[in-house]
Simulated assay, not measured.
Amino acid sequence: MDELNQPPHANRGVVMLEEEKENVENPLVSMVDYIRVTFKTHDVDHIIENILHLSKDFMTEKPNGFYGYVGTYELDYIKVFYSAPDDNRGVLIELSGRGCRQFESFLECRKKTWYDFFQDCMAQGGSFTRFDLAIDDKKTYFSIPELLKKAQKGECISRFRKSDYNGSFDLSDGQMGGTTIYFGSKKSEAYLCFYEKNHEQAEKNNIPLEDLGDWNRYEIRLKNERAQVAIKELIKRQDLTYIALQIINNYVKFVDPNERERRYWETSDFWQAFIGDVGKLRLFMKPQEDFYQKSRNWLRNSCAPTMKMVLEADKHLGKTDLSDMIVEAELADKHKKMLDVFMANVADMVV
């Protein structure tokens, strides 16, 4: 049997958590994964309150920005950049992957969806300069290393001219790491990336690979006109499936060779099965409410060992240096803002 068509191997144990049950019932999950949208206005308050529907009181202002913008309002991973009065850049909203997950909390609180947000942006003349979609595949319809081998044998028909890839392995035991395949150029307006998400997460979080099970991630990255067209189609159809199918199936197809010309080769069974299931995707919203998690993680990873050392010394010497330092510390404005956000309810932050 072709390795691409073999069922995935995973020992999940007898007990299955609710999230794992959902993954079996819905093996493919799609999500909005990155957004940049610009507005030809300098009224940043209007954009924050009428597009994001957030209270500016919970946002932190910084006198600097990226992409040529001069200042930033941010709520953790949700960022709003503004330009100088004589600069026609106007205002830019940027939501990273984590920013999208956080913003979904606000959408859920307002009983709105991404479709409503996209419509609000378009109604205010918004121009999407980047729009990313992601598909998580816990069923793993194919092995990405085997998919790479198939592409290298010329068994991938694509509108892209070039592909790239990377991978890794452990020098101590030769164990293979994750494999990533890139379709197209990062500079182009359409770009696909398929990779083994379980390997990435295992390395990033220092957890055993087997604890994560099988997990592929397929990312679709669109820029400028392609992003704008995708958003318009999404508003019209209100179906993320359509966008994902149009992009993936339009740009990439894996085939099995036969005696006929390459353009007549039949679509591989595993690819047809994958595309068929993608057609059942739903728009996924998994709100993330730990808005101060980044700083908490930094404290745990960078400072906790030192704090524990001082605590142990205090116990030995009969002192209270650690608690004294904490009590006497003065919070900077950014820490106060972070604490306000953490202690507030999501409903308090939306307008």
Rank of each mutant, 00 (worst) to 15 (best):
K62T: 15
K150E: 07
K315P: 01
N345W: 11
F117V: 11
K319G: 10
Q201N: 01
V15K: 07
S188G: 14
A190L: 03
I47K: 02
F66P: 00
G279M: 06
V278W: 02
K286P: 01
Q6A: 13
A273E: 09
L192P: 05
L148Q: 06
K149L: 01
P63A: 13
E49T: 14
N26H: 14
K111I: 01
E155V: 04
N205V: 00
Y251W: 11
H316S: 12
F291W: 14
M285H: 09
K112G: 02
R221D: 00
Q288M: 08
Q228F: 03
L133F: 15
D137C: 03
Q102V: 03
D348E: 14
L75K: 09
F118A: 12
T38S: 12
Q152R: 15
E155S: 12
F39R: 08
N206D: 06
E203F: 04
L28M: 11
R159D: 15
K138T: 05
I35S: 02
I235E: 02
C193P: 00
D290F: 11
S185L: 04
K150D: 07
I157L: 12
V80K: 06
S163T: 07
E203Q: 10
V351D: 14
E104M: 08
I93W: 04
T113S: 15
L54N: 05
A332H: 12
Y82P: 05
Q201Y: 00
E104Q: 14
E25C: 12
T113A: 04
Q201H: 03
V91I: 10
D86P: 00
H316A: 13
S302M: 03
Y115W: 09
T38M: 07
I326E: 11
K294W: 01
Y141N: 06
L283T: 13
A134C: 05
F274I: 02
D214T: 11
E330T: 12
Y73D: 08
P305T: 08
I326V: 14
Y34A: 02
D170F: 02
N198H: 07
Y34W: 14
N23A: 14
E328V: 02
D333C: 03
D321M: 13
